[in-house]
């Protein structure tokens, strides 16, 4: 259970003179829910893009699911799932077509897709909407569907980039229920968020300031070491030190 699926060691990315990500180091265990916090412009997105194999680091080491971020980006891409803040489903495709398409991209066979999507739709309560266009679904359902699609091919790690934007608190709570279930199935969840109540749900949380990781601990540990009553206070204390302006 203590196997690391994400490791980063002095990972750095600079664009010209600007160091977006500055020597970050951490490990994430299998099945862990890892909160990746930071103000806008702190370097979260750049770091996440390096982990997803979209950009190459300038220096340092990192491996994702046991694959090297310099040499094995293709293998990384096959072993991760990704969900963005815009949910990234096709509005003009039906629920089933979206599932078929994304699962097909990851090379799943038609049979496997069929066998897996029936229970999934049942679990999501979307059986009746199977052939409805995704554009007609309420936001909360789209979000749950989007997450289900992101982990449909059973990735080792799923990256969630501000997955709960614009969704009401009740739906958010339900969404986190799904995240816990994924974590129980040993899928590692790497999540960025701006909602501090969500940070409390994570197993461990890191806070990035100006490209560096300023703090990393369990939510309880962070509150204790910063003498704060909530994650919100912890975040504000750390983020105030930032010299960079957010975008």
């Amino acid at each position: 259970m203590n196997e690391y699926v994400i490791t980063a060691e002095n990972l750095t990315k600079s664009f010209g003179d600007f160091t977006a990500v500055d020597r970050i180091s951490f490990e994430v265990r299998r099945g862990e829910i890892f909160g990746f916090l930071g103000a806008n412009g702190a370097g979260k997105t750049t770091a996440m893009r390096m982990f997803c194999g979209l950009i190459l680091p300038s220096s340092g080491k990192a491996s994702i699911g046991g694959f090297d971020v310099y040499r094995e980006t293709e293998a990384i891409k096959r072993n991760i799932g990704y969900m963005s803040q815009r949910f990234s489903l096709y509005d003009d495709l039906t629920v089933q077509e979206n599932i078929n398409f994304y699962a097909g991209i990851y090379g799943m066979s038609r049979k496997a897709i069929r066998e897996k999507s029936a229970p999934l739709l049942k679990q999501l309560g979307l059986e009746a909407e199977r052939n409805a266009l995704v554009g007609s679904l309420p936001l909360g359902w789209k979000q749950k569907l989007s997450f289900s699609v992101a982990i449909f091919h059973e990735p080792k790690i799923v990256f969630l980039d501000e997955p709960t934007g614009g969704v009401d608190p009740i739906t958010r709570r339900e969404f986190w229920q799904m995240i816990y279930e994924a974590s129980d199935r040993d899928i590692t969840v790497f999540v960025t968020t701006h909602y501090m109540d969500e940070a409390e749900y994570c197993h461990r949380v890191s806070v990035m300031v100006d490209g560096r990781i300023e703090a990393l601990d369990t939510p309880g540990g962070l509150k204790k070491s910063h003498g704060a009553a909530s994650m919100n206070e912890v975040f504000l204390q750390l983020a105030r030190k930032a010299k960079r302006k957010g975008d």
């Binding site: 990704y82 969900m83 990234s88 489903l89 096709y90 994304y102 991209i105 992101a150």
Partner: peptide, 9 residues
């Protein structure tokens, strides 16, 4: 959706 496609294999 392009983001998701680029992250995919």
């Amino acid at each position: 959706t392009m983001e998701v496609l680029l992250v995919s294999p």
